[in-house]
């Protein structure tokens, strides 16, 4: 399950192209990404968006699952504090994010591989810049090499997920 795609998307083999999974909430960040589209903004093609109704739906297991299956980075986009379509789902996300960051650090996953951004439906430009920044950072870090030293590879999924 931890195998990597031999050739990175879009470019020549020599340059590493990170693969990033994003979880966008339906009401703010997904809309902002749609707006980036209708505004014809251009950004790096490395992000794959999974739409959820609220960033509060992002189960920490989703993040772990993404890393376990070869994501080089995970990006969560939600509404600004106080603006959540469901009142306070994004606050729950924030708490889980901080906790999860520590867990990921323990696992040897660099901080820059995991990012949470508040992006409102109007902030298409922020989608572009946040994605571009993250892609650059993760590209600098290189591919995620999850070294599961003491764990049998067969057990990897069970441990991570």
């Amino acid at each position: 399950m931890l195998s990597r795609r031999p050739s990175a998307p879009g470019t020549s083999q020599s340059k590493f192209e990170p693969r990033i999974v994003a979880f966008f909430c339906n009401w703010c960040t997904y809309l902002a990404a749609d707006l980036a589209g209708t505004s014809r903004m251009k950004y790096a093609p490395n992000v794959r968006v999974v739409r959820l109704m609220c960033s509060g739906r992002v189960d920490p297991q989703f993040v772990l699952d993404a890393f376990a299956h070869g994501a080089d980075g995970v990006f969560i986009g939600g509404c600004h504090p106080g603006d959540c379509h469901y009142q306070e789902g994004n606050y729950k996300t924030l708490k889980r994010y901080h906790l999860l960051k520590r867990v990921l650090k323990e696992m040897g996953i660099e901080e820059d591989r995991f990012r949470l951004e508040w992006i409102s439906a109007a902030e298409a430009d922020r989608v572009r810049t946040a994605i571009n920044q993250m892609v650059e950072k993760v590209r600098d870090l290189g591919p995620l090499n999850l070294e599961l030293k003491d764990v049998e590879k067969a057990d990897a999924e069970e441990v991570l997920v």
């Binding site: 998307p9 879009g10 980036a36 209708t38 014809r40 251009k42 950004y43 093609p45 968006v49």
Partner: peptide, 20 residues
Amino acid sequence: VNIREHVSWVHLDKKAATEK
């Protein structure tokens, strides 16, 4: 699958866009 707002309108590289 949103391949307009999230793909064709925001990427220039045809190969990368198709892969995405």
